[in-house]
């Protein structure tokens, strides 16, 4: 059994999650072991989550050409990058506005002091 990182666009319903899927603010959206249904895929797409970890058997056909991470330790996601990701999402519809771009830059410069729950 392997855990594979795959793009959402490469899978369909029925695959089993090999890791928790987290929201931008670190809450568990879908737990490890969940059998992914279409409604889950819809949620993931809506949340703009592009990749997930799934369980795959050795002889499983699913191979999206992604890296095998079975024995690799995942880099801890820093608070800063979580905050920047969240800010990008909050500002996504208004970033073309000149003032809002300035506000985004200011907020981003303070990312270290910002906490998200």
């Amino acid at each position: 059994m392997k855990i594979l990182k795959v793009a959402i666009s490469n899978i369909g319903p029925g695959v089993i999650l090999g890791k928790d899927v987290l929201t931008n603010d670190g809450q568990v959206l879908l737990g490890n072991g969940t059998t992914v249904a279409q409604k889950h895929l819809d949620i993931l797409k809506r949340r703009e989550i592009e990749e997930i970890f799934i369980i795959s058997n050795e002889d499983d056909a699913i191979d999206a050409g992604n890296d095998d991470i079975t024995n690799k330790q995942e880099e801890p996601v820093s608070n800063r990058s979580r905050v920047v990701k969240k800010l990008e999402r909050v500002f996504s519809k208004v970033i073309d506005n000149e003032d809002m771009k300035k506000l985004f830059d200011l907020a981003e410069s303070k990312a270290e002091q910002i906490t998200i729950n």
Binding site: L106, K110, T115
Partner: peptide
């Protein structure tokens, strides 16, 4: 309201931010 959204301080019921109205500054 806009500034606290930009600082992710709490949540008022959505995940977005309104633009600063023209002329407000």
């Amino acid at each position: 309201d806009i500034l606290v959204r930009s600082l992710c301080l709490g949540n008022g019921g959505d995940e977005k931010i309104p633009v600063i109205p023209d002329g407000l500054l």
